[in-house]
């Protein structure tokens, strides 16, 4: 949390708008009845930054990134994302925000009744009102980019898990987002398919895409993460560089977590 304070101070002393964080999560809390899922989460994400969020299951990682694009409402604090106050939850603003911040889900969530091409065109055509031919052309480019140029006509159910997740990434990119949220993108994959998905994500990161990634893939974190955020019991417990976090975690809970996931 100290890291975020210093970032905030830095941006306030330099009056350059471009340096305002793309995303500011400020003291966000969420509870379901008496169960507190998130409390006091504070985090800034700069443009072009790749932030990896890790932590034990049930620690609130997925809930936190779903708060960012308003999929999950929160009860306390404030989230400013690309100038939109997410907590106010005005439908108009949320739609605008979601067209700019894409999301990739653990279970892909491709639309099973639509072809791969239609999956990529749905939101561009119906939300951005792009002409169909333009959306299709862009979709074909993106399928080339994720290495699936010949799958445009397939149905999602005919693809492997790794291929589906690559299509899902292409679908998110079809909206030309300024940032992408990943919710455990490789957790539902067979081990041999994790690599192909991570390769696409590494390439995205290198191209300068702003990314918030909930994942346990420590290799990915080391390779591209600018920062690693460790969450436990709904709180952000530790924030640091990937190297710093993995080699010298400062909190006991992070050490325990790392020893458990790195031991196998």
């Amino acid at each position: 949390m100290n890291a975020t304070v210093s970032v905030a101070v830095a941006s306030s002393t330099e009056p350059v708008l471009a340096q305002a964080p793309l995303l500011r999560i400020d003291g966000v809390g969420k509870s379901y009845g008496t169960v507190q899922v998130l409390s006091g989460c504070t985090l800034d994400v700069q443009r072009g930054e790749v932030v990896v969020i890790c932590g034990p299951s049930g620690s609130g990682k997925s809930t936190l990134i779903k708060c960012v694009n308003g999929l999950v409402p929160f009860n306390a604090g404030r989230i400013l994302c690309d100038g939109v106050d997410v907590g106010l939850g005005r439908q108009v603003d949320l739609v605008r925000l979601r067209t700019r911040v894409g999301m990739v889900f653990q279970n892909f969530e491709l639309y099973p009744h639509l072809s791969v091409l239609e999956n990529l065109c749905l939101a561009p055509v119906h939300v951005l009102r792009r002409p169909r031919s333009e959306a299709a052309e862009r979709a074909h480019q993106l399928l080339v980019r994720v290495g699936l140029p010949d799958k445009a006509g397939s149905l999602p159910g005919q693809l492997s898990g790794g291929q589906q997740q690559r299509v899902a990434i292409a679908r998110a990119l079809a909206m030309d987002p300024i940032a992408l949220l990943f919710d455990e993108p490789t957790s539902a994959l067979d081990p041999e398919m994790v690599g192909e998905v991570l390769d696409v994500m590494v390439e995205l990161a290198r191209d300068g895409m702003t990314m918030m990634v909930v994942t346990h893939e420590m290799g990915f974190a080391r390779k591209v993460a600018d920062r690693v955020v460790f969450m436990d019991a709904g709180r952000i417990v530790e924030t640091g560089t990937a190297d710093g976090f993995f080699s010298e975690p400062t909190t006991e809970r992070a050490r325990g977590f790392l020893s458990r996931i790195l031991s196998h």
Binding site: L71, R98, T99, G102, Y111, R171
Partner: peptide, 8 residues
Amino acid sequence: QAALASGL
């Protein structure tokens, strides 16, 4: 969720 997240 996926549909809403894409701005629909």
